[in-house]
Structures are given as C-alpha cells and as structure tokens.
C-alpha cells in the first residue's frame, strides 16, 4: 500500500507538469484527488490493513494529498500567469490612436466671468438680486437722482419703448427696486448682474452689454469700506498682488463718487499698450449712495449710509483675457467660444 501511494504520488507529480491549461489541470486534479479519483480509490483498500498500519498509511496518504494540493495550486498560479501573459501579448492597443470623440461644451466666457464675480461677492455675504431689463423712466432715471432734463442723462443714450419705458441703461434701477422690497430692513446687501443697453456700437461699445451692480446699505457704511470691498474683489478676481486706485468722479446717484482703476493686468503697473502707459485700467464706477437715492428708496440718510458700484462685465472679461474687440463676445463664432 505504501508503495502504491508513493507510486501514485510520483506519477501525479509528473502528470501535473503536462497539464497545458487551467482546464486540464482541474481535470487532472479531479482525476487524482476528486471523490472518484485515484487516491480515493486506493484508500478504499485501507480496511484491509492492520490496525497498526492504518494510522501510518492514513498519515502518509494525507501528506501526499497535501503535497499534491500545494503543487497543483502553485502550478495553477503559474498557468494563470502564463494565460494572462498570453492574453496581454495578444491584445496590445495602439494607445496613440485618438480616443472616443467626446466634445466639450462650455459656458460663454462672459457668463463664466460674471459667475466668478458673483461668487466673489457671495463669499462676502451678498445676495444675487435681479431687476428688469425693460424699465420705466422712473426707476432708470428719476429715483437714481436723474430727473428729466438732467444734463447727465446725456451720458447714457437710451433705447426707448415709449417715452416712459426704456431698456435700462444700467443695472442701477434694481437698487431702488431692492430698497422698496427690503425697506425698512437692513442690511441691503446685493449684487445685480444683468444685461443693459445703450445706443452705441463700436470696437469698445456694444448696444447690449453686461453689468454687475453692487449695493450695501447699513448703519455706518463708510467710503473706506467701499475701498476695502473693491480691493478685496480686485484681488480675488485678478490676483493677490492687485492694487486699486480711486479717482474722484461724478455720478448723479452717488456722492462722493469715484472711478476705480486696477493696476494693469498686462504689465502689472509698469505701463503698456493696454493701459495706455498709465499702469492703470479703469474698471468700475462707485461711490457712497446719494442721500436722495436713499430717501427715494425709503431709507433715512440720517440713520443709514451705503455704497454702490457698477462693474462692466464685458470690460473685465476683455481685460482678463486680453480681448481687443468687444464684438467678439457677441458674434457667437464657435471658433471663439470653444477657446474657453
């Protein structure tokens, strides 16, 4: 019996090596170690052995089984590795061929920039508020301290629908609409993005363009707060090194008023063609809300103060991306749109 077992082991070890694949190996395993396999068959004769021999042979049989199992499992690993190697060798891709054509779309550059601006101010606690594009003379001019025959109305050549209704020339009318809606609550802390319209059409003017208005009304709002807020905006929008410069100016709805420059994004203030050698770029108008505007919005200028600013999204976009012609933004040429 011992000889038979050792013979079986020897033969099995030799046969094992001849298995060409996992399937053959499995068949082999069954034929040797399975329920009806050779080892089982051989052990059926155990009963004929003496009581002394039985445990000895039993132990031997178990050892042989374990050894074979180990050999089979090790060989199976080898075969699997070989199979994978063969598979890999047979299915090499030309990884330099182009991938599936996935075409990206994109938001319009203007609205990417607008959303970025919105996000900066939302981060500072502002809410996005929207007004109407078709406005009344009252909201567009009167409550912005631009009564009829005010010379500053010349600054904004308007598209009229009727003598009393027009396309808003700035996002400012939303200031009063917001005040009406929120009065007497404070703060009024909003930004107003949107389309505005003026009769103008050239490389730097479009009859339709985009502004973001900002308005903060609260107790103790100061001019220095306006300056700090705009500096923060400029730095988030154009980089931490940005500087800003405020120059006295005039808007009927703010007092004091300021034109706000940022250091040139092209030359960082050294002076170049974009900034006309000055090192500064004018990007927005701002100021402390005029007391009459506060009054017309229902707020007492003796109790609250505020600041407001109006930013040209189109201009910021042009500066940020170095566009030389505003009309690119409205031609909707996909060769342009795809670039962003």
């Amino acid at each position: 019996m011992r000889e038979q077992l050792l013979e079986l082991k020897e033969k099995a070890e030799a046969d094992l090596e001849r298995c060409v694949d996992l399937e053959a190996l499995n068949e082999f395993r069954v034929s040797v170690l399975g329920k009806k396999g050779e080892l089982t068959k051989l052990l059926k004769n155990m009963g004929r052995l003496s009581a002394e021999e039985r445990p000895v042979i039993g132990q031997l049989a178990n050892e042989i089984r374990d050894q074979l199992e180990t050999r089979i499992s090790r060989f199976s690993e080898t075969l699997r590795d070989q199979g994978i190697q063969r598979q890999i060798a047979g299915e090499t891709l030309d990884v330099t061929l182009p991938g599936t054509d996935v075409r990206t779309g994109g938001r319009h550059l203007l609205y990417q920039v607008q959303e970025e601006i919105e996000d900066v101010f939302i981060g500072m606690g502002y809410s996005v508020y929207e007004g109407f594009e078709i406005e009344t003379d009252y909201y567009n001019f009167e409550v912005m301290n631009l009564p009829k025959d005010h010379p500053a109305r010349d600054m904004q050549d308007s598209f009229y629908i009727t003598p009393e209704v027009l396309l808003r020339t700035h996002t400012s009318p939303a200031q009063n609409r917001a005040m009406e809606a929120m009065c007497p609550n404070i703060p009024v802390k909003i930004i107003v993005p949107g389309r505005v319209y003026r009769r103008d059409d050239d490389a730097t003017h479009s009859p339709m363009f985009h502004q973001v208005e900002g308005l903060l009304i609260d107790e103790h709002v100061r001019f220095s707060d306006l300056k700090g807020t705009l500096l923060e905006f400029a730095r988030q929008m154009f980089g931490p090194e940005q500087r800003i410069r405020l120059r006295p100016s005039y808007f009927p709805f703010t007092e004091p008023s300021a034109e706000v420059d940022i250091s040139c994004v092209m030359c960082h203030g050294r002076g170049c063609r974009t900034c006309g050698g000055t090192g500064w770029l004018e990007i927005l108008g701002a100021g402390m809300v005029h007391p009459r505007v506060l009054e017309m919005g229902g707020y007492d200028p003796g109790k609250v103060t505020g600041f407001a600013f109006g930013l040209g999204v189109d201009r910021v976009t042009m500066l940020k991306y170095g566009l030389d012609d505003l009309r690119l933004l409205f031609e909707n040429d996909v060769r342009f749109l795809k670039q962003f």
Binding site: S224, K227, G228
Partner: peptide
C-alpha cells in the same frame, strides 16, 4: 483714505 471692510457682522439680506 484707508481700505476697510464693512462691519456688518456677516448679516445678509437674502
């Protein structure tokens, strides 16, 4: 004139 940030205490209007 200095540059400061409004002392609104983070209050929002909406």
């Amino acid at each position: 004139i200095g540059a400061t940030l409004p002392a609104g205490g983070g209050r929002q209007s909406g």
